[in-house]
Design a protein around this nucleic acid. Structure first.
Lengths: 331, 331
DNA sequence: ACGTGTCACTTGCTCGTGTCACTTACTCGT
DNA sequence: ACGAGTAAGTGACACGAGCAAGTGACACGT
């Protein structure tokens, strides 16, 4: 009976099994509207499909329709922190009920992204971070159906702004609220992070300006406690009592540097991070940081994709409530 | 001229442009063997293709050939640590020259992986970790061309064994070499990590047995310094002087717990982690840990995929040199 | 009896490639 | 002069699904 299940069942097989034409099978399985099909037939076909374990060939479908059911999550090649992993998982879950499959690809700048796009013909592409104009042109040329860009601004209607500046702003506001007058900023040396760095720093600057504080004293931290020690010395000399770190990793380097220099945190110098990485709760002292609610971010991304694909509904935005300060002991 | 570049160019368009048949175009672009084509024609076609920016439709090609050029990297839904990110990037780079595109998908156990498989029809699937028999059966049924499983054993020829036990073994050996007689093991409470936990622990056990030490004193650590403090108290009462932590995150919780309890690391209790996460260098004290060379792991994975797909060459194994102890101060 | 409408389907074309089989034209050995 | 062999290329058929258009059967109104 089932002897020849070597090959995958096609809709043709289902049609034969149910005693109807292939088209009918197609109509039934796709719930094609404006088609009148008696329940008896429908049942027969559905059962036949189940019996043969039929599942449509994605490539054939894609060929016919012009796009697949894959949503491509395009990530830059720099370290994006664990928050992304959580977002990815949530996003995949949000997209599943719509029949969309999420796959991730980290984009290596050596290779054009045409490859990935063409290899998948995705229904939508979500990319995080900003790319160069070259990549922009490539995407344009590839005629992507929907493009959700998670970036800083909302210059195009398909863009979903992530409140990056607000992260810096919240850091600064927290420091100001706890009595700090002179604020420092610890930037990463990694060049590829510049977009994020600049925007977070911009947020810090804005907050300082609004609160009537001096502009932040910016120092670059290398991947080494010694560089942190040096920066800390300079900050202290300049009267800085609170530092906003680019993220928790930089904050941890700062903590290590402070330890070496005999500087007490938060008494001599307060430190606040970003991302609330798992380890942040276990540093010495535990790190005060800004968290991101991956759930809400993912929900908005999913919403943008669905709206873009179906053309119905309205695009939301990422609410500022995705960010929150987790107060521990470092600030 | 270029006015109608709205639609993507097909091989038909290239054929017309070059004044040959579509078949010829196909032969040339695919370097089909046993075909005699004069250089003049070849050039003409290649130029026409370039001029029209022709790139073959992945779906059509996939439909015809039965599989795509996508390699699917199937990840489990538990937190796998940053090492994976590095491996992913390396792997993608290794596969590119073979015309293969790597995409990742984290597998949610609620949903069967049929979806992803069918949505991509990948040329190969690499999965890390062990899945249940249900998923195994699903994969079997889906007739995957090559399956590289990164797991503990090498029970099937397509499996690539990752020396997980060896990680635990190296931890224990390092502790023993630095004079510790009684060894503890700090396990994570997360149930999904059990495969990894059990194997690392197994390595620790083996090493202890071989070195003539007592079996390790295993304690489970919750995501909370208090639970670490408790475990540390019990270890010290039992005469344990060195602890192997499941990974650096657990090790960090241990460090935090020790701090609270006034236990000095490494003098009162040595701690060694695993993974060499970025933050490990900046803890107090800096964490001694076992690193994984993502580069070598990725190279072997790529090798397995290529061998499996082309049928030529020989499958290598992951050398034990991928692991190394980074001695810092915690042990 | 005849036109119209709806139901329940089916026929046939299309998406873009890969590839087998087949046709010319031309060269060469005997 | 003639068959064999090769170079250079073409025609036609899959692959599996979606969809526009068509078809026969029956019901209903006049």
């Amino acid at each position: 009976m089932e002897h020849a299940s070597r090959r995958r069942a096609t809709s043709q097989d289902v049609a034969k099994e149910a005693g109807v034409s292939r088209t009918t099978v197609s109509y039934i399985l796709n719930n094609t509207p404006h088609q009148s099909i008696p329940d008896a037939t429908r049942q027969r076909v559905l059962e036949a499909a189940a019996r043969l374990r039929y599942t449509p060939s994605a490539s054939a479908r894609t060929l016919r329709r012009g796009h697949s059911d894959v949503v491509l999550f395009l990530l830059p090649d720099w370290p994006i922190g664990h928050a992304i992993a959580a977002v990815t998982e949530q996003l995949a879950q949000h997209l599943l009920p719509h029949g969309l499959t999420l796959v991730s690809h980290t984009h290596l700048r050596e290779r054009p992204l045409d490859d990935v796009w063409r290899a998948l013909t995705p229904a939508a592409v979500i990319r995080v971070g900003e790319f160069g104009p070259v990549e922009d042109e490539q995407l344009r040329q590839a005629q992507i159906e929907v493009l959700v860009e998670v970036g800083v601004s909302e210059s195009s209607p398909t863009q979903l702004a992530f409140p990056i500046q607000r992260m810096g702003r919240m850091q600064a506001e927290h420091l100001a609220a706890t009595g700090h007058q002179r604020i420092g900023y610890a930037a990463p040396s990694e060049r590829r992070l510049s977009v994020f760095r600049d925007n977070r720093l911009h947020g810090v600057r804005e907050a300082c300006a609004e609160l009537g504080l001096d502009l932040p004293d910016v120092r670059t931290i290398e991947n080494d406690p010694a560089s942190a020690t040096e920066a800390i010395g300079q900050w202290r000399a300049a009267g800085v009592t609170g530092v906003c770190a680019y993220n928790d990793e930089i904050a941890m380097i700062l903590l290590a540097g402070a330890r070496r220099a005999g500087v007490r945190v938060p008494d001599d110098l307060a430190v606040i991070g970003t991302d609330n990485m798992h380890a942040a709760a276990f540093t010495d002292p535990p790190l005060t940081t800004v968290t991101i609610d991956a759930c809400q971010v993912a929900a908005q991304m999913a919403n943008h994709v669905i709206v873009g694909l179906t053309g119905t509904g309205t695009r939301g935005r990422i609410p500022s409530s995705v960010l929150d300060v987790v107060v521990r002991e470092s600030a």
